[in-house]
Each structure stands twice: as C-alpha cells, then as structure tokens.
Design a protein around this nucleic acid. Structure first.
Length: 413
DNA sequence: GTACATGATTATGT
DNA sequence: ACATAATCATGTAC
C-alpha cells in the first residue's frame, strides 16, 4: 500500500509527462519519495499485472543485463534495445529505484546551493553602470551628463567639445557592446519568453539542456527535480558571466573616464594670440588686474579659451608678477608700448576692472602711466607701482592709507 | 636630462 | 564666490 502512493500521481506536476509520455505511471514514479521498501522485495505487486516477485527478479536481471551490454552494440542495435527497454513493463519501477539511489548518493546534489541572495557587489555594479549612463534607458544626455558632471568643477579645456564627443562615442560603444552581451546572458523568465524575438543565449541554452535531460530521462534516471537543479546551476553560471560582464564594463568606463580626465588635465599652452590678448589686458590694467565677469567673457571669446581659463591665467599672472616684478618688466614695457601705440586691440576695454574695490588702487593707473618710463633697475620702476604701493593688489580692499599719494580713484585711462 | 615656463588644481582666507 | 599662495604636472628650450 505504501508503494501505491506514488502511483496516485501526487508528485510535483512540473515535469509531468515530459519524455515519459508513453509510459503511464512513469511521471509519478519519477517523484517517488519513500520507496525504500519497494526494493526489499522487488515485488511491487501493484504494478501492472505482475504475478510474483520471482518473475520480477528475473525481469530486472534481464533488464540490467541488457543495459550493461548496450554500449557494446552498434548504434542501431542500441537504439532498438533502448526502445525495447523503454517499453518494458518493469521500466518505471526500475527507473524510480535508480533515481532514488542516485538521490541518496548525493550525486545530483552537487552544486545545489539554492538561494542566491542579491549580491551586493552586483547591486553596486548595476548602480554604477546606471550612473555612468551605460545601463538604463538611452537618454542622449546620459553620457553627456556624466561628462559634464565630471568636468563641471574645473574649467573645460577649449577643445572640450572635441573630447566630449570622443568620450561620448567611446561610451556609447561600450554601451552597445554591453547591451549586446547582456542580452545573451539575461535570463528571460520562461513565462515571458514569448516577448523576446530572439531568445537570449541563456534561455536557449537552458531550454536545450532541459530538453536534453528530458529526453535522456527516458533512458537514464533523471528526475524532474534534478532537471530543475540543473537549470538553477545554469542560471547561476550565466549570472556569474553577467556579473563579469558588468565588472569589465565598469572597468572600461573607468579607464575611459580616467583617460578623459587625464586629457583634461593635460596642459596645453595657449596660443600666442591668446597670451598676447591676456597680457595686453593685464598690463593695461596693471593697477587693478581684476577683470570683471564681462571682461573675462570678452577675453575668453577673444582668446578662444574659457572664462575659467581666463581666471586661472589672471590668478597665476598676478601672483607670479607680484613675486618677481623685475622679471616681468620687459614684458610690461612691451605691452605698455603696444597698448599706447596701437591700442587697437580693443582691450578697448570697457576697462571694467572688477568692481570690487576698484577704487583703492589707483596707484599706477595704467599703461599710459608707465609708458614713458624705461625699465630702470627693476625694483623701482613705475610698473611696480600697481603692486607696490602698499604691498600688493589684494590690499585693494583696504584703502591706500596714505601709501598712495596721488591716487584717489581708479582711473585706468 | 635639466631647468624653467605655464596651465591647472588645491588649500585656505576673506 | 572669489582671491591668493603653494603645488602639481606638463610643455619647452637648452
């Protein structure tokens, strides 16, 4: 009676009938749970018309014998034999016993670590890919946003648009490779499989293995549970591949990004015209070399650089000039001359020296002031005045405090 | 290879 | 937010 239970077909319904379609009772035997007694007598009196254990034992011996010799036979012979065995009335019983033995040996349990909790590393990778604009929806601005985020802090190099598009194209290359690959490995749940026109490799492979195992379960003990486990293993393998793909994609993006940032950091000297324009402005506003925002914009346009580059340049120039005025005398002279003579160069300037505290510096007005003064001996030349009167420009907030006799207002012209 | 020039970055102050 | 000062990192001349 115990043996009867499996036959009532209460086993899991998935796997049912697969590859066993021609064998009534087979599917239920596949999922037999405690048939241990069955082996003891080999009886199975419940099985279709078995008269006695004696005959059964002979049957089984016969079957085993046939199985043992099957590999020695030709393909055709073996095929025929397989079919015959398949139809043998003892097959279901034997099958279930073999399955049970297999289950007990733990053979099929290998690699059966179930549950795969969401890997935190994978989550991180996903987030990163999303942030970099590789994963997620293709929004034209994705890559650009990442780039501008990366560059917003500092000034963009003048050819940033070039590098920009370079970065973008490289990133979209990575993106497309990533998606092509990911498609292969993505596990499309069987239920939604119809959605995809081309099956991802994972699903295809899984289906293939499942079919193979089902087919093989006709001739060797393979339980549906085992098939399920195998599917699990395959999925895990594929998700490992997926993780690796994500990892290397992240790496590629990082490399691309660092290269881009490096390129941004790379220093390229400004063109001669640009330096000239900047110097002209600087020396013609020596008393207050703080271009206003508009002046900076103007200069940036004129020199083909960015506003922040202009700011950098002026920052560097001021500090370096102040540090070593003597060294810059010749240059100052030159530009003063230039400005005085041609003046053409529209540093025309709205001489908009930065509004902040402009009033305080009037020491040496501007170009015109040091025009006539040859670079005497460095230290005392009129050029320094802008700086020297009271130490430096940044006293510009503090009133001249007597240090500058002839000044009360900034008059750059 | 070295020294210097120069654009960019960073820390700090206002 | 902007300026300075120091520093970094690279370009360039020798």
């Amino acid at each position: 009676m115990l043996q009867q239970q499996p036959l009532t077909g209460n086993g899991p319904s998935n796997g049912r009938g697969l590859g066993m379609s021609g064998h009534p009772g087979m599917h239920s035997l596949n999922s037999v749970h405690h048939p241990s007694q069955r082996r003891s007598d080999g009886g199975d009196s419940g099985l279709e018309g078995t008269e006695n254990g004696h005959e059964n034992r002979r049957d089984i011996g016969d079957i085993l014998q046939q199985i043992m010799t099957i590999t020695d036979q030709s393909l055709d012979e073996a095929q025929a034999k397989k079919h015959a065995l398949n139809c043998h009335r003892m097959k279901p019983a034997l099958f279930s016993v073999l399955c049970e033995i297999k289950e007990k040996t733990g053979l099929s349990m290998r690699n059966a670590q179930e549950d795969e909790p969401q890997d935190p590393q994978l989550v991180r990778l996903d987030n990163m890919l999303l942030a970099e604009g590789v994963a997620g929806p293709e929004k034209g601005g994705g890559a650009a946003a990442a780039v501008s985020a990366a560059t917003s802090s500092g000034g963009m190099s003048p050819d940033s648009s070039l590098e920009h598009s370079d970065y973008k194209s490289k990133l979209s290359q990575i993106r497309s490779i990533y998606h092509t690959e990911l498609e292969k490995y993505e596990q499309v749940p069987c239920r939604n499989r119809r959605r995809a026109l081309t099956l991802p490799a994972c699903t295809e492979f899984t289906t293939h293995v499942m079919n193979l195992l089902r087919e093989q379960s006709r001739t060797r003990p393979v339980t549906p549970r085992e098939i399920e486990r195998m599917v699990g293993i395959i999925h895990r393998k594929f998700s490992t591949i997926q993780t690796q793909l994500k990892q290397s994609t992240c790496e590629a993006v990082m490399i691309l990004r660092s290269r881009f940032l490096d390129a941004r950091r790379k220093r390229r000297n400004f063109s001669k015209q640009a330096t000239e324009g900047l110097n002209e402005y600087f020396y013609s506003h020596l008393s207050n070399p703080y271009p206003s925002e508009e002046a900076k914009e103007e200069l940036a346009k004129q020199c083909g650089i960015t506003v922040s580059q202009v700011s950098n340049w002026f920052g560097n120039k001021r500090i370096r000039y102040k540090k070593n005025i003597g060294k810059f005398q010749e240059e100052a002279n030159l530009y003063a001359m230039k400005t005085a003579l041609g003046g053409t160069q529209d540093n025309d300037s709205p001489h908009t020296p930065n509004s902040t505290g402009s009033g305080s510096f009037s020491l040496a007005g501007s170009a015109d002031l040091f025009l006539g003064v040859p670079p005497v001996n460095g230290e005392q030349s009129a050029y320094q005045m802008g700086v020297q009167a009271n130490g430096n420009w940044h006293g510009r907030n503090s009133p001249p405090s007597g240090a500058s006799p002839h000044s009360d207002s900034e008059n750059s012209d």
